[in-house]
């Protein structure tokens, strides 16, 4: 493992300074991480599991801000880029679900060896579904989970992803491919390009089969579930409500909160650049 210290930032009055470091974990399939470490001994380790594709980039700033805050509260927080994504080694087409599971496990082992403390998984979008998958293989490795707008069904998620390609073709007036047809090509091992990302058949087919149904263990796992609500109401969508009820029936404790911010993982953020527009217009006059 290599860790380069990027710097130390002072926290607000009354809170400790935090150290920010970057490094890689895992020998065979190295995964990049950005780590926020508290001034004193950590009372817990948070591992952030990112969303897929462009959603991962859109969430980065908010995640880094939250990770820094966690470190000021005495928790270590490690932001992971799965193998084949972000700053990690490898291409996305080489990534597989078992490799990603191993990335999490390698990081968990590294953190607990450095300092013995409980590990909490913080999954955003697809990262939450990956967290649930990881716990099927490593039961009890994390008893408390934080979910940001989790993806409850891999099959729905992959369909939604492939639909972007179908919709792009439709808009160009080209013969539309069906999502079922694309799934069949992926299952046969082909790779398909969607919105600038080349997706490998093995990874996407494995994600397609993930469902958030239950968490193994003795019913002592707790999920803090943050769900977006555009109008700020506490009403959950029918699908989310069903999945939460299923998980609760299998003994998992779930605390749900809704938040009314703009959905940061989606596009269409109308950031204004008035200065740029004005100066361009001045050129043309």
């Amino acid at each position: 493992m290599t860790v380069d210290t990027l710097g130390t930032t002072a926290g607000p009055a009354g809170a400790g300074a935090t150290e920010v470091a970057a490094g890689f974990v895992g020998d065979v399939y190295p995964a990049f991480f950005l780590q926020f470490w508290p001034a004193g001994p950590p009372r817990g380790h948070l591992i952030y599991l990112p969303p897929f594709g462009e959603e991962m980039n859109r969430c980065r700033a908010a995640v880094a801000e939250q990770a820094r805050w966690f470190a000021r509260q005495g928790l270590s927080c490690t932001v992971l880029d799965f193998y084949g994504t972000g700053e990690s080694d490898g291409d996305l087409t080489d990534a597989t679900l078992p490799i990603w599971r191993q990335n999490i496990e390698d990081l968990r082992v590294q953190l607990t060896q450095r300092w013995a403390a409980p590990v909490y998984l913080w999954g955003c979008r697809l990262g939450a579904l990956i967290a649930v998958d990881y716990l099927q293989w490593h039961p009890g490795s994390s008893k408390r989970l934080l979910f940001w707008q989790p993806v409850p069904s891999g099959s729905n998620f992959v369909t939604q992803l492939l639909r972007q390609r179908a919709a792009a073709l439709m808009q160009k007036g080209e013969q539309g491919e069906t999502t079922a047809g694309m799934k069949a090509r992926l299952a046969a091992g082909e790779s398909i390009e969607v919105a600038g990302y080349r997706l490998g058949g093995e990874l996407v087919t494995a994600i397609d089969q993930l469902e958030m149904r239950f968490l193994p263990g003795d019913g002592d796992t707790e999920i803090f579930w943050m769900e977006h609500s555009a109008d700020g109401s506490v009403a959950l969508g029918a699908r989310t409500a069903r999945v939460i009820e299923q998980l609760q029936q299998t003994g998992t404790t779930i605390s749900v909160s809704t938040f009314g911010d703009e959905p940061i993982w989606q596009l269409h953020k109308r950031a204004s650049c008035d200065d740029l527009l004005t100066k361009t217009r001045e050129l043309v006059i």
Partner: peptide, 10 residues
């Protein structure tokens, strides 16, 4: 655009 359509369907 196409992304809006897919987001709306979701």
């Amino acid at each position: 655009n196409s992304l809006t359509i897919t987001t709306l369907i979701v």
